[in-house]
């Protein structure tokens, strides 16, 4: 049984008569100890998806799913209180912007110990010791003095380490990292990712790495899920997807990577942006931007279907190994 089992998850915002679907019928299974990348442009719904898993989608947003289960427990049926016992303990999250993610009014130590207190209790002294250990584990030098520091006294990389320490404080079985390095300097990025991978291996926790950077997913994940406009458009083992993308969108993302542009004069890019509330097209959501668009794509939305071992793609004419559209 999968650790996290999501079937047809939908998150809607706005009026019930004309809702905006930020997440649109997503299926996703994560096994214990697995590292999965969720890749997509800004606005593809990947962050909202993770918030929905943690139960953090706020009032105007509506979450619905056929299944949303963690370790066999139906999250949508749990009481708010029972769900909070999971959130922050068994499932934890690291967010995008470390500089605004720590409460400016409290010390680092207070914020880490608070998590421990809520989920595990224990004495003040043991909590303090745990917090010290955690800071040491995420590679913060002189943890004792950092415990007393206020967030504005930390650099971005240091803050992200603190936030990671916070997230792993209660030994979660699932850690979701939402663009954990986007707001950081390039040199720090590699350190933070390395830290996340080390922690994942040591503790055997499942890791969902959300990113807009396919290369980053390729280096760190076993499996990748590509999202576009709230939908999963392709998923599969990272090596296979990288070698021969089945969906034109994945192909476009890959060819936009600098690495694949060797020898070419210009990098291939995908014209246009992810559709928003007002310009959602009919048929396949990608069709206005797709290189291989056909009449059928304009009229009929494609379904997600198998396109190889453990692979799925949402396309009427999935690409073959040579990158040409096939007719089914």
């Amino acid at each position: 049984m999968a650790l996290l089992d999501i079937e047809h998850l939908t998150v809607e915002f706005g009026a019930a008569s004309a809702p905006f679907r930020a997440v649109d019928g997503v299926d996703l299974q994560i096994d214990a100890g697995e590292v999965v990348g969720i890749v997509g442009e800004s606005g593809s719904g990947k962050s909202v998806l993770s918030l929905a898993v943690l139960g953090l989608v706020d009032f105007p947003g509506r979450v619905a799913a056929r299944t949303l289960a963690f370790d066999g427990q139906d999250l949508l049926r749990l009481s708010a209180r029972a769900r909070r016992r999971l959130t922050g303990k068994d499932m934890a999250m690291v967010f995008q912007d470390p500089m605004t993610s720590l409460n400016p009014c409290y010390t680092v130590g207070f914020q880490i110990e608070e998590t421990l207190r809520v989920h595990e209790g224990g004495s003040r002294a043991t909590r303090r010791q745990r917090a010290l250990d955690l800071l040491a584990q995420v590679g913060i030098p002189d943890p004792a003095s950092r415990l007393r520091a206020f967030p504005h006294q930390l650099s971005g990389g240091m803050s992200q380490r603190v936030l990671i320490a916070l997230a792993i404080a209660c030994n979660p079985r699932l850690l979701i990292a939402d663009e954990p390095t986007t707001a950081l300097d390039v040199t720090i990025q590699a350190q933070i990712l390395g830290l996340l991978r080390d922690l994942q291996r040591q503790r055997g926790m499942a890791l969902i790495l959300i990113t807009h950077d396919l290369a980053l997913a390729a280096e760190n994940c076993q499996r990748v899920v590509v999202m576009y406009a709230g939908q999963v458009v392709e998923s599969g083992p990272i090596a296979a997807v990288f070698a021969a993308p089945r969906h034109p969108y994945t192909r476009a993302l890959l060819s936009a990577l600098p690495e694949s542009g060797t020898g070419q004069r210009r990098l291939a890019t995908l014209a246009g942006v992810v559709p928003g509330q007002y310009d959602r097209p009919s048929g396949c959501l990608l069709h206005p931007r797709c290189l291989f668009v056909s009449e059928r794509c304009r009229l009929q939305p494609p379904g997600l279907r198998p396109v190889g071992p453990q692979r799925q793609a949402r396309c009427h004419t999935p690409l073959d190994a040579a990158g040409r559209p096939t007719d089914d």
Binding site: Q277, Y278, D279, R280, P281, S282, R298
Partner: peptide, 11 residues
């Protein structure tokens, strides 16, 4: 662009 999409242009 379909007619449907046109009615949804940002105001």
């Amino acid at each position: 662009m379909t007619e449907h999409a046109l009615t949804l242009t940002p105001p």
